[in-house]
Every structure is written in C-alpha cells, then in structure tokens.
C-alpha cells in the first residue's frame, strides 16, 4: 500500500476516534444529568433526525435556508468586493465607509434583527442579516489585500509599461485572492449562524430557524439538537465546497520544478 494511502487512512481513523470521543462525552453528560429535556441522548437525537428526513418539510426548510444563506453571501461578497475596491482607490470613500464597518461589527446582531423585523418581510430578514454581518468581513479583507499588494511588483510593471488591465489581472487579483478566500470561508460559517438566528426570530415559512423556534416552544430538545446538527453539517458541507472551489481557482499547474510530490510537501529545488 502506498505511503499516502496509509497516511490518509490514519487521518480518517483519528477523526473517527475524535468524533466517537465527543459522542461518548455527550452520552455521559446525558446520563449524568438524567433528563432528556436538558440534554437528550445522542441516540434519541439520531432517531429524531431519522424521522425528520422522511418529511417533505425537512427538505423544503433546508432548501429555503440554503437559498437565504446563498443570496445573503452572494450580496455581501459582490458588494464587499465592489465597495472594497472603490475604497482602496479613493481615500475619501475609505474614510467614509470605515466608521460604518466598525459600527456594524460592534453592534449586536440582535439589534439588527429586531430592526430588520420592522423594516422587512420575515423571509427577507435572514438574507439581510446574513449580508449585513458578512459584508464588513469581505470589505475589510479586500481593502487589506489591495493595500498589501507588493509595491515592488507594481514598480516593475510600471517601468516595463504593463497596461493597467494586465496589472489588475496578473498582479492585483492573485494578491487579493488569499485574503478574499479567507474572508469567504469565515463569512460562510458566520452567514449560517446569523441567518438561522434571524430565522428563529422572524420565523418565516420553510426555515430551519422556524423549526428551532418550534422545538423551543414545545420543549422538544431532541428536535432542537437534531436541527442544530443539520445546521452544523450544512455549514461544514458548504465550507468544504467553497474551499474546494477556491482550491481549484488558485491551483497551480504542477511542473517538474515546483511540483509538490506528496502530501508531505516535499519540494524539488533546482540549483545552479
């Protein structure tokens, strides 16, 4: 068997053991407390989840929650990039936007949710909140990415008369991508959390948050845990998909000289 396969199998086994450990801690906690209403057993949560997955409403709720998160993220990423680029190009715009971003970051998300409940329909509240919470992260990273572009590379391009569009494509974009991808991954996790929180308070039709709210009303802890598990799994799944997409975007052709030979990151160094 290849070394890489052995390493991969060992990693999977490690992950499984870690998950098993935390499930055991959960079970012990359940036994220690002894009441399902406080901490339901892992078994009862899995059973509840098994019941839920056969219901149509389970899938429609997931689909609509995903839709809201995606729209919120799409808006925050698009506007975050546009406003970030404009702020980097113009100091006055930066000075104007910066206090707003600081204020948004410092304001409790609940204040925004309550305001949004007054302003918007219940279905749009999670989208707005997701956008509002993720936008400052994208904006900050775009601005930081642009300001950290290597000035020496820009000077080189200037001396050699490289056109502005080429400079943007070949120097600015590759420099910003690491900052933007980090911001997108952070926003994705945050986006799920705040969207579901907004759904709990706005309880639109077909929403994971609405089911969490019902579970709270009926003191159904197993259902609460089951839906929470669904949110965690969806968040992880989306993070994986996004990381994979970003990985493809920044993937470099492996060549003789720069090839990463193995997952152990062994590099071939060429010498004079």
């Amino acid at each position: 068997m290849k070394d890489s396969t052995i390493i991969s199998n060992k990693k999977s086994l490690n992950k499984f053991v870690i998950i098993l450990f935390w499930v055991a801690v959960w079970q012990i906690l359940h036994l220690f407390i002894g009441r399902d209403i406080y901490v339901p057993s892992p078994f009862s949560v899995v059973m509840r989840l098994k019941e839920l997955i056969f219901l149509k409403v389970f899938w429609t709720s997931i689909a609509f929650s995903i839709y809201r998160v995606i729209i919120g993220l799409f808006l925050s990423i698009t506007l975050g990039i546009i406003v970030g680029v404009i702020s980097s190009m113009n100091r006055y715009v930066y000075d104007l936007i910066h206090p707003l971003m600081t204020a948004i970051k410092a304001t409790p998300v609940l204040s925004f949710i309550i305001l949004a409940l007054i302003w918007l329909s219940s279905s749009n509240v999670p989208i707005f909140i997701c956008f509002l919470m993720c936008f400052p992260i994208i904006w900050t990273n775009v601005v930081t990415g642009i300001s950290n572009v290597d000035k020496k590379l820009l000077e080189m391009a200037k001396v050699y008369g490289v056109k502005r569009l080429t400079v943007i494509k070949k120097i600015y974009l590759p420099s910003i991508i690491p900052y933007l991808s980090a911001a997108c991954i952070t926003s994705l996790g945050l986006g799920w959390k705040v969207s579901v929180a907004a759904e709990v308070l706005s309880h639109p039709r077909n929403a994971i948050g609405s089911h969490l709210y019902s579970a709270k009303v009926y003191l159904d802890s197993s259902e609460l845990f089951a839906w929470t598990l669904v949110v965690i799994l969806l968040s992880l799944l989306f993070e994986r998909i996004l990381a994979g997409f970003i990985g493809k975007l920044t993937y470099r052709k492996t060549t003789k000289g720069s090839a990463v030979l193995d997952k152990g990151c062994v590099k071939i160094e060429a010498t004079d």
């Binding site: 052709k253 060549t255 000289g257 720069s258 590099k267 160094e269 060429a270 010498t271 004079d272």
Partner: peptide, 14 residues
C-alpha cells in the same frame, strides 16, 4: 529548461 518552473523552485541566482 526551466521556463515552466515557479520562482520558488529556483535558486536566488537563477
């Protein structure tokens, strides 16, 4: 021979 190499794979002199 090194035209497809990335700078990180080359020595300082190269």
């Amino acid at each position: 021979k090194f035209k497809n190499y990335y700078p990180e794979a080359l020595s300082g002199g190269m």
